[in-house]
Amino acid sequence: MRIVLAFLILLLAGAAQAESITLASTTSLDNSGLLGRILPLFTKASGIEVRVLAQGTGQALATAARGDADLVLVHDPEAEDAFIAAGHGISRVEIAWNDFIFVGPRSDVAHLAGSSDAVAALRKVAEAKAGFVSRGDKSGTDSLEKRLWREAGINPLGAPWYKDIGGGMGAALNVAAATDSITLTDRGTWLSFANRRDLAELVQGDARLINRYRVIELAPSRIKSGSPAAAHALATWFAGAQAQAAIGAYTVGGRALFNPGVKVIP
């Protein structure tokens, strides 16, 4: 029991050291290793420790709306609009972008390879009844997929070839790899994903597939730590020279995953 108490004290001491803020972000930014690489630079410069909650965009925004985060970094324009309209967020700045791609088995029964039209691709998927894995978790990727289906004029819900797995990007890629299915993925998660098996990049290059990451500063009443200054410091840092250079310099297997680029969203 003494050991237990010693453990507990160590644990609590470890948890309580520096000023810390909670960043609710998406799995794509965290699982790809980007945040783990660049955030230590911020901590070193500011002394503020950043705790990353890696959730889908829908869940990250819900977490922030409940007052359980200090800053949000997500990628779903429509959900962000609703979040800001509801008064939870006060400002939004784009800090990085890359793109989404359709990946699927090399056998490519729907003949998607080489195409760059995301909506036409989904029509072909439905026509060929090719296996398709959907996140189904209200993440940024999931919202985009649903928007593209709407644009294609197809409701795939309930179709036997459409698998709604209700899971993260990695889970969806695992299912797609195991069942020879097509799925929509952000490029960062795809490039850092280690279990691709027979999956290959099939569709890319559509303007609708651009993936923009935005930092949202929260209304003071929503900020968890009670330290708007620290949250503002991190938001400013993301858009600053050091973070932007680090985002551009981050590679996995020799390939850049994210493009830096700052744009204030009015």
């Binding site: 699982n31 993260g168 990007m169 990695g170 695992n174 994903f193 280690a194 279990n195």
Partner: peptide
């Protein structure tokens, strides 16, 4: 902070590791 063995297994499985 709050990453344990079981949550790491979940996470790494999601990454295909």
């Amino acid at each position: 902070v709050t990453r344990t063995m079981t949550t790491t297994i979940t996470l790494e499985t999601g990454k295909g590791n």
